[in-house]
């Protein structure tokens, strides 16, 4: 493993450094928890020592202060994450992954948070392929990470990394859709209000382009869609899915692609009939699995689910390989 050499040296440096500073070594050892194993403590000690400079009031010999406690707390967050599999609010996670950069832990234990495996009722998740999937993902991501960060592996353990939209994605996209909302509203006013006889495709396209973005359409022949109710007799026609900036807006069906697109645009415009539009992360089916997708919603509670996704822009190639 690539980590071996890096870890050797990291640990060596730390112990060398401590040998030269017996006082520091003694002081830092007072923070060792009773139940910490050598391996855990070594890693955490390195974390504390590496980040001490960032907490200027933390000095060896000074028994305790609130900034020392903050450092200790973050070191525990980091070890809890690496060794127990805990996750914390995003802001905290960002912080520790930055602070933990460069510290190498050799084969950290693998724990599953409940997102993979056990569900609320305690039953094993019925989606068997989900498990296999996450294994693949784990391996791939691990490799990926090492490649992309030559500085060394970070603490962030691959398990918790999901493909899918980032949690902050809705917030990032929201301003654009607020603008789009206004554009659509004005456009519809000038067109005499929302109705069945409009050119929905044109309205949507022009509004989006006036906001300096483009519309993405994906077409799939109906017969290629698996997982439709078995009794379904209709086999011809096409389905169209509209996205903008990766955010899903609507799905439509029609005899040909144009008709499908028109229907999808109409569905998308319906969303703009509320008082506001919101970008959210929602679960949808995609290729027979549940995925998290970015979706544009109005404020009404939805009485039904989303149509299965036809495309999925948040996926890296590895997953595509792994799942197909």
């Amino acid at each position: 493993m690539r980590g071996m050499a890096g870890e050797r040296s990291g640990e060596d440096i730390v112990s060398e450094y401590l040998d030269q500073n017996p006082q520091l070594s003694q002081w830092v050892d007072t923070f060792r928890g009773y139940c910490e194993s050598n391996k855990q403590w070594c890693a955490r000690r390195e974390f504390i020592l590496r980040n001490m400079e960032a907490f200027p009031t933390v000095k060896p010999g000074v028994p305790s202060s609130s900034s020392l406690d903050r450092l200790l707390s973050l070191s525990m967050v980091w070890t809890n994450h690496v060794f127990l599999g805990c996750s914390y609010p995003q802001a905290v996670m960002d912080k520790i992954s930055e602070m933990g950069e460069g510290i190498v832990v050799q084969d950290p234990p693998v724990h599953k948070t409940t997102t993979a495996g056990v569900t609320a009722k305690g039953k094993w998740s019925a989606v068997a392929e989900g498990d296999a999937d996450s294994c693949v993902k784990r391996a791939k991501c691990g490799a990926n990470e090492v490649d992309s960060r030559p500085a060394g592996r970070t603490s962030t353990r691959p398990v918790s990394q999901k493909t899918g939209p980032l949690p902050q994605a809705p917030a990032e996209h929201q301003p654009f859709f607020n603008r789009l909302y206004k554009a659509v509203a004005w456009k519809l006013v000038s067109a005499g209000g929302f109705g069945p006889n409009l050119d929905h495709v044109e309205i949507l396209r022009s509004c989006i382009e006036s906001c300096k973005q483009t519309l993405t359409c994906v077409f799939v022949p109906l017969k290629d869609i698996t997982g439709l109710p078995a009794g379904r007799t209709q086999k011809e026609g096409h389905v169209c899915e509209i996205r903008c900036q990766t955010v899903y807006m609507g799905t439509g069906y029609g005899r040909d692609e144009a008709a499908a697109k028109a229907m999808a645009s109409k569905e998308a415009l319906k969303v703009f009939q509320g008082r506001k539009v919101t970008v959210k992360i929602c679960r949808r089916r995609y290729k027979g699995k549940d995925v998290e997708d970015l979706v544009l919603l109005d404020e009404q509670p939805r009485s039904q689910g989303f149509a299965p996704a036809l495309s999925y822009p948040f996926q890296d190639e590895q997953l595509e390989d792994g799942s197909s």
Partner: peptide, 12 residues
């Protein structure tokens, strides 16, 4: 200074 007590998700 006690944020480590409160993970928002954990392994079982």
């Amino acid at each position: 200074s006690i944020i480590d007590f409160y993970p928002d998700d954990f392994a079982i």
